[in-house]
């Protein structure tokens, strides 16, 4: 439902009614006046209601995401250059600048939090959801490489010793990297166990 028509005593009233029904804010709409209200004779006869068509203006999620990040960095007094890259299923915003370690945090916690908030803000008034990945100086890329190497090394150990290995807790994205790294290994299975946020990947021999 992108566009609706409403009537009211005044134009403002008609617009407000439409906004309420659409569940949006004033900034996110545009309206067209279909009929001007008129009082009619002595305010009694032949009075006409105002009629408007209100349309929701969707915003480009990537532009909103960039604006969100710029505002956040502004208040943090950080000078950050945002570099946009496209992936098959997501948009990557890679941040470059001095002293951005604080944006990563312990095990990328701050980066994940910022990414989560940015996705919420960007997709709030979007017509179609866009997945936004935020990276700092290729941190995620390097972390993915480290995790893949770790997976291969541990799989090797499992093959030699036969015992299963339980990794440290990871978020869904990092667990996926481990699973993917070993998915073509014929002798190894991987699965996750435990509950978020302590879910862990297990590497074991295929029975």
């Amino acid at each position: 439902m992108n566009s609706i028509e409403k009537s009211g005593k005044t134009i403002e009233e008609a617009v407000d009614l439409a906004i309420e029904e659409l569940g949006v804010t004033h900034e996110n709409i545009e309206y067209e006046i279909l009929e001007e209200p008129s009082k009619g004779l002595f305010g009694l006869f032949g009075g006409k209601m105002a009629r408007v068509r209100v349309t929701v203006k969707f915003k480009d999620p990537i532009a909103v995401a960039k604006e969100f990040l710029e505002q956040v960095f502004n208040t943090m007094k950080l000078e950050v250059f945002i570099e946009k890259m496209s992936q098959e299923d997501a948009i990557v915003l890679n941040l470059r600048g001095d002293d951005l370690g604080l944006l990563i945090g312990k095990h990328g916690q701050t980066l994940d939090a910022l990414q989560y908030l940015c996705n919420l803000a960007a997709n709030k008034n979007a017509e179609q959801r866009v997945k936004i990945i935020i990276d700092v100086e290729d941190y995620r890329k390097r972390r993915a490489e480290t995790l893949s190497r770790l997976a291969l090394r541990l799989a090797d150990k499992v093959r030699r010793r036969g015992d299963r290995i339980v990794l440290e807790p990871m978020n869904p994205h990092e667990r996926k990297i481990i699973h993917m790294a070993l998915q073509n290994d014929r002798r190894i299975v991987t699965y996750s166990e435990g509950d978020e946020p302590f879910r862990k990947v297990v590497i074991a021999l295929k029975k």
Binding site: V72, M76, L102, T110, A113, L114, Y116
Partner: peptide, 17 residues
């Protein structure tokens, strides 16, 4: 409380600075 938690995480990072 996932959103509140993310908000606090980002604010804490700014506070460290």
């Amino acid at each position: 409380g996932r959103i509140a938690k993310a908000l606090r995480t980002v604010v804490k990072a700014a506070a460290i600075r």
